[in-house]
């Protein structure tokens, strides 16, 4: 079965991203296909490579990046939500005249249409948020 996963909260403050990660891993383990993980609202903050959690804590952003690499996940950060919250890739940084970008490996920035498309193409869309 095809699953789409939506993450609506940032890392650490809410459990949403952790829950989404556990769900995604288990769905893959059961042989389901994850067609997209879409990050919206403060969920876009999962996509910065600049987080430095304490060494004895989980590294949420790295966990997502590694899962994406291992299973070729399509992880999309909503561009409108990302721009509000300062999550930029190289192209966006250039376009907006910013001096740096911060998108983490495995994430890409794209439009809300990617969320709708996930809803259309997936058999199930599962949202994690607050």
């Amino acid at each position: 079965m095809k699953f789409g996963v939506v993450v609506n909260e940032g890392p650490y403050t809410h459990q949403a991203s952790d829950s989404a990660y556990q769900f995604t891993k288990e769905a893959i383990a059961q042989g389901h296909e994850i067609i997209r993980v879409f990050f919206y609202h403060d969920g876009v903050n999962n996509g910065t490579r600049l987080t430095v959690p304490p060494g004895d804590d989980r590294h949420i952003q790295n966990n997502w990046s590694e899962l994406a690499k291992e299973h070729n996940l399509d992880m999309v950060v909503c561009i409108a939500a990302a721009q509000r919250r300062g999550i930029l890739d190289e192209n966006e940084a250039k376009r907006q005249g910013k001096d740096a970008d911060n998108i983490a490996e495995g994430f890409r920035i794209s439009g809300l249409g990617q969320l709708i498309e996930a809803g259309i193409q997936a058999d199930r869309l599962v949202t994690f948020g607050d």
Partner: peptide, 19 residues
């Protein structure tokens, strides 16, 4: 467990998260 969570999601036609 999470295995049950995934199975429940698959067994029902849609998932509604009460956020």
């Amino acid at each position: 467990g999470y295995d049950g969570f995934v199975k429940l999601a698959a067994e029902h036609h849609a998932v509604n998260s009460w956020l």
